[in-house]
C-alpha cells in the first residue's frame, strides 16, 4: 500500500533522515519505534507533505506521493493524526469534524459523523464545546475522529499515547485495533515501545535517521537490542 524508498530529509542542511526505506501492506499495523530525535515524527511529516523530502521516493497505492501537495495527499486516502493532536481551539468539536470532511460529499456527512460518535460517544456529548476546552484524552479522540472523517484508508498516528492517563491510552489503542480489524491500515509512531509492539504486526527500529532493525513484532520483542534499548531491559 505504502512504499518508502531511500527517503532523505534535512532541516537546515542537517540530515534528519538518511535513506530510510520501509513498506506498509494493506491491512497491517506497522510501528516505527525509536528514541527521541531518531526521526520518527519527521517520517510522518514527510509522508503527509508537511516537510519536503530532499531525496527518495514514496508511493501510495502505486502513485507517487512526493509531487503532491499535502491537502491532495489527504484526498488520496491518507490522514495524519499529528503529534500534539492539532485540534483547532476556536472551532467546536462538530466544526473540527466537519472541516475534516471538507473534500467529501455532503450527503455522507451525517452518516460519517454518526460513525465517529459511535466510536467516541464522548465527542457527541461535547460536540458543541470549543476545541480548546477539551481534556487531553478528548482531544486525542477528536484528532482520530477527524482523521476518520477524511475516510482515510491509511492512518498515520504520531504518539497517540503522549500525555494520556493509562486508562485513556488503553481506550485509544482498543479503538485503533478495532479500526484495523475493520480494514484501516495503520502506521504508528510511538515512544511507548512496549505498547506499540503489542498492538502492531510489524515494526521498524529507527536510530539517528536510519532503520537499524525490522521484523514482526513477536520477534523484535525478544531481540536483545530492542529489549535493552526500548523495553527497559526486562
Amino acid at each position: 500500500m505504502l512504499e518508502v524508498d531511500n527517503l532523505w530529509i534535512s532541516y537546515d542542511r542537517i540530515a534528519a533522515l538518511r535513506g530510510v526505506s520501509f513498506t506498509v501492506q494493506k491491512g497491517e499495523i506497522v510501528t516505527l519505534i525509536g528514541a527521541n530525535g531518531a526521526g520518527k515524527t519527521t517520517i510522518l511529516r514527510a509522508l503527509s507533505g508537511l516537510v519536503p523530502a530532499a531525496r527518495g521516493r514514496v508511493t501510495f497505492e502505486g502513485e507517487d506521493l512526493l509531487s503532491l501537495p499535502a491537502h491532495v495527499r489527504v484526498r488520496r486516502g491518507m490522514a495524519l493524526v499529528p503529534e500534539g493532536r492539532g485540534i483547532f481551539g476556536n472551532l467546536t468539536v462538530l466544526e473540527n469534524l466537519r472541516l475534516a470532511a471538507y473534500t467529501r460529499r455532503r450527503q455522507d456527512l451525517e452518516r460519517d459523523l454518526a460513525a465517529v460518535f459511535g466510536i467516541f460517544p464522548r465527542l457527541e456529548e461535547r460536540r458543541h464545546q470549543w476545541g480548546n476546552t477539551l481534556s487531553g484524552g478528548e482531544q486525542q479522540m477528536l484528532a482520530v475522529g477527524r482523521a476518520l472523517m477524511t475516510k482515510a484508508r491509511l492512518l498515520l498516528l504520531d504518539e497517540p499515547s503522549m500525555g494520556l492517563a493509562p486508562v485513556l491510552v488503553q481506550e485509544i489503542f482498543r479503538v485503533l485495533r478495532r479500526l484495523n480489524e475493520a480494514g484501516t491500515t495503520i502506521l504508528l509512531v510511538e515512544q511507548n515501545a512496549r505498547l506499540a509492539l503489542e498492538v502492531a504486526h510489524r515494526a521498524y527500529v529507527l536510530e539517528t535517521g536510519q532503520i537499524t532493525l525490522s521484523g514482526p513484532c513477536d520477534e523484535l520483542r525478544h531481540h536483545p537490542k530492542v529489549r535493552e534499548a526500548y523495553l527497559g531491559g526486562a
Partner: peptide, 24 residues
C-alpha cells in the same frame, strides 16, 4: 460555512489545516 471554518482554523493553527484536505 465550511469556508468560514477553514478561515478560523488557519488563524488558529495553519500548519494543521492541509491535513484536513483543505488547500490553504
Amino acid at each position: 460555512t465550511l469556508m468560514g471554518m477553514a478561515m478560523r482554523a488557519i488563524s488558529d493553527n495553519r500548519p494543521i489545516v492541509p491535513l484536513m484536505g483543505v488547500s490553504v
